[in-house]
Design a protein around this nucleic acid. Structure first.
Lengths: 226, 226
DNA sequence: GTCTATAGGCTGATAGAC
DNA sequence: GTCTATCAGCCTATAGAC
């Protein structure tokens, strides 16, 4: 029964791809928790169940692993947002999906908001990441343009909309662990909103805050662009 | 002429308070730029024009200096917001002042948004800071309540309003340096909003997004609470 | 590909003279 | 209060055996 598993267990792990994967997974967790400087290679290897030296072998060093993780996280986030954009039948639903995507990417398998915040706060954003950041901004901008086109939004600078949305979302989700801790320790004398509540709030705020100037009388809505 | 300055220059610096102050100023700048781990004590002392050992002498170590700086920054921010709250004749102006306060505290002498973000991302918020954080949330909550009372806002969870405002503001201002860099290097194919533009946008978004449900007919506004 | 052992760099803290 | 000199600890990276 055991023998079918390629020559017993001896050293167990035997797949280089599994090694890379385990390191990236461990890194995603640890780096978003403690930041780049806060994680010794030994901890990474420990959590991944592999040897320290393999970080250098596979990723050319700690920084290399970090960048590989960020690239994967950013690419994944950008891809997901584009998917949502493509699938949404209307700007309204695109907005909804957009907000929910952040809510979901907050954990499992990656904490995108935290990684993102940490990186953007660092000295200079990793060049390899810039394309993905621009992709994400691109989605926001098209969302804004589409909303205006469909009569959902008033005329608005798409980049402003981007920062309004992403800023709140990233901040709220990235600070959730700290909030949770403060509440658990009984330091907070009022109720903290859930993720869903916040996502809903922000969506509603955007919808109402950017709604066209309350068409004085007629029912001018939907597909008004000529 | 020179001799009036207490015995010439020899070792120049002679005031312990000035030393503490210089270290805190240098620390404010360096820590918000590079984060706690990113700043060696030597750099702190260098920029302050003071000896390394004085960090331990005056603050009990690097971490002690860091906490002292954060406490000062948080206290200052909380104080300023409370001042604005007290002076504002209406919720509308309180909101305006609130947003502007973040815009202004972004640099000179302290970069509050960046320090704040870094701290809240760290393992656990420094206990000494919690009271100030709660004070700030308190201002937001009262702002929301006041807005509702004055008929400026619909009924809204004050904490939600807090996170919506503070999240965007802190994110936008803290990421400004990274944005500026990316633009300077020619990586960004569109215009980035100015601080003022963003502050204005957010204020307007909040005002419209939380406006009461468009009073069907009558002119019910201003001081409606009985 | 993986592991052990070790080199070498940097950093925070302090003892003790001034 | 300030400064010089020094030390111990931690951490990344790598050489070389398996």
């Amino acid at each position: 029964m055991l023998t079918t598993e390629r020559a017993g267990r001896g050293k167990a792990k035997r797949d280089p791809l599994a090694t890379r994967h385990a390191l990236m997974k461990a890194g995603s967790e640890l780096f978003s928790e403690r930041g780049f400087d806060g994680v010794p290679i030994e901890d990474l290897a420990g959590r991944a169940g592999v040897n320290k030296a393999l970080v250098s072998y596979h990723f050319g060093g700690k920084r290399g692993l970090y960048v590989a993780i960020l690239e994967s996280a950013f690419a994944s986030m950008a891809g997901r947002l584009k998917e949502i954009e493509a699938d949404a039948p209307s700007a309204r639903e695109a907005l909804h999906g957009y907000v929910r995507a952040f809510e979901q990417m907050t954990r499992e398998p990656l904490d995108f908001p935290t990684l993102f915040l940490r990186e953007v706060l660092s000295t200079g954003i990793e060049p390899a990441l810039l394309p993905h950041v621009l992709e994400i901004i691109g989605v926001s901008r098209r969302l804004a343009a589409r909303g205006v086109r469909e009569g959902l939004f008033r005329r608005v600078d798409p980049v402003l909309l981007h920062f309004g949305l992403v800023g709140s979302l990233v901040f709220f989700f990235a600070t959730e662990p700290a909030r949770r801790r403060a509440v658990a320790e009984g330091h907070v004398p009022f109720a903290m909103p859930s993720r869903q509540a916040f996502a809903r709030y922000l969506e509603g705020l955007t919808l109402r805050g950017l709604a066209p100037a309350a068409a004085p009388s007629s029912t001018r809505r939907k597909g008004a662009h000529a």
